[in-house]
Simulated scan of single mutants.
Amino acid sequence: MPFASANAESKDRMLRRNRTMKKCRFISLLLAVALMLSVTACGNPSGTTPASTDKSDEKTYVIKVANQWADTSVHTKFITEKFIPRVEELTNKRVKVEFYGNNSLGNEFNQVEQTQMGKLNMCVISEQSASLNPAMLNAMMLPYLFEDEAHWDKVVNGEIGKKFGASLPAKGLRVLGFTENGLRVITNSKRPINSVADLKGLKIRVSSSEMSIALFEALETNTVATTIGEVFSALQTNTFDGQENPYNTIRSFRFNEVQKYLAETNHVLNTMYFVASEQWLTSLPEDIRGAVEQAAKEACQYQVKMLREAAAADKKFLLENGMTATTPDVAEFKKAAEAVYEKYYQKYPDGKDLVEEIKAAAK
């Protein structure tokens, strides 16, 4: 074959091969586009362009919770054993709780102030914070108000409890649940208490509740109000002769080590409140807020059950570790307590209807 003819044939083959390669690349490109459209259609059946993914639902939240109680107290355990794991469970661990117990962020007054400001998210308040709503919170501290635990249950879990829950947002707080502090009894280091007369002249520490102060003044004691964190050292140095608290508090703060006599006066069935910062709570997404409220409710129920189950064991422990008990006739104490009601009605006339409503709940 002549060289010129062979060369022309070679060029023709090269042109055909190039055209074939271009056609293949075009077909491959069409197939790739078709595949991409198919995948998009599967992920978005409507055929519309997917909206950008909002990552805000993956945000984690830190909750700062504080109280004034020792690690062994039921007022701490209901937070550490129930609230913390439950809120983490309900939020798939999108919530992390930082807990500050045993007055590590200051006493109750400090904690309330921090919670109102939103610097602290949740805390436990007692009758010491009655100034937040004096008529309502002081009513719950009136002596011999509740007939028994079932009566208390009806009050906090009924319409009266709802009133409490709605009473504090204006003060920057919201009640998420009620906890029980048990029946208060009197201890001292001087003598057994069998009557009101035996209390006369003793220097007794009470909480800063107006009703507590009024009761012990009616019992003719030398009454001093302080926060709970100061009590042990004051009893140890005989600055105070005695104090009044429920069994679990006496045990968890080791008052039995500096007190000899315990009088079962059972003068108040004590209520406390698990509260949240209103500012903080309302800023949370609905699902996180719902989880916090649900976990708080369940934790408070857990606390009440735990405290009641522990009461007999706490009393037994105290009597086996340095204390002796007396059981005064409470009729005499109830008579003295009438002066407290008179003082309450005089100062909070609108509270009389509330007290009657609480008493009626027992029926």
Rank of each mutant, 00 (worst) to 15 (best):
R19V: 09
T237G: 05
E81W: 04
Y344L: 10
N107P: 00
Y100D: 05
V292P: 04
I125T: 07
I228W: 08
D287Y: 01
I79N: 04
D148A: 01
V62S: 01
T271P: 11
N103I: 06
K305D: 14
T282F: 00
V258F: 03
T221H: 04
V224R: 04
A296R: 05
Q279V: 04
N107Q: 12
E357K: 11
L90C: 04
K93R: 13
P328D: 13
L142V: 07
S126N: 12
T72D: 15
I213M: 12
V340N: 08
Q243H: 06
N245S: 13
S129N: 14
F3D: 12
A313S: 15
D329S: 12
I288Y: 01
K93A: 03
P246M: 09
S283T: 12
F178P: 07
Q236H: 11
N121D: 15
E88C: 00
E147G: 14
K190R: 14
A51K: 15
P192M: 10
L37W: 12
N181S: 15
A150L: 13
D54K: 07
T53K: 14
N266K: 15
T40L: 15
P50G: 06
I193P: 04
S195Q: 07
L35F: 13
C123A: 09
M21P: 00
S233F: 05
K363T: 02
Q346D: 14
C24K: 10
A312C: 03
T237R: 12
G242D: 07
V175H: 01
V185K: 01
S189G: 06
N181W: 11
A66F: 11
G242E: 08
E357R: 05
V87T: 09
T326G: 01
A296T: 03
K347D: 11
V231P: 01
Y345M: 07
F146P: 10
T20N: 08
K171V: 04
A299R: 07
L137N: 11
Q346R: 14
P50W: 12
F3Q: 06
K297C: 01
T271C: 12
R25V: 13
R254A: 08
E320H: 00
E342L: 08
K171E: 15
M14L: 13
R174Y: 00
Y100E: 06
A170K: 14
S131N: 09
V268R: 00
T40A: 12
S189C: 08
D57F: 09
K82W: 02
K162T: 13
R25F: 06
Y302Q: 06
T221Q: 05
A362G: 12
D57V: 15
E342A: 11
V268K: 02
V258G: 03
Y273R: 09
S252H: 04
K315G: 01
L202V: 05
A276W: 10
N102P: 06
A311V: 10
A362K: 14
N107Y: 00
A166L: 00
T249V: 13
Q294S: 08
T326Y: 11
M122E: 10
N121T: 00
W280A: 02
V224Y: 07
E257G: 02
M136W: 00
I288N: 02
T53D: 10
A313V: 11
N188C: 01
Y61G: 03
A66M: 09
A8H: 03
T249A: 12
A296F: 02
F26P: 00
V258D: 01
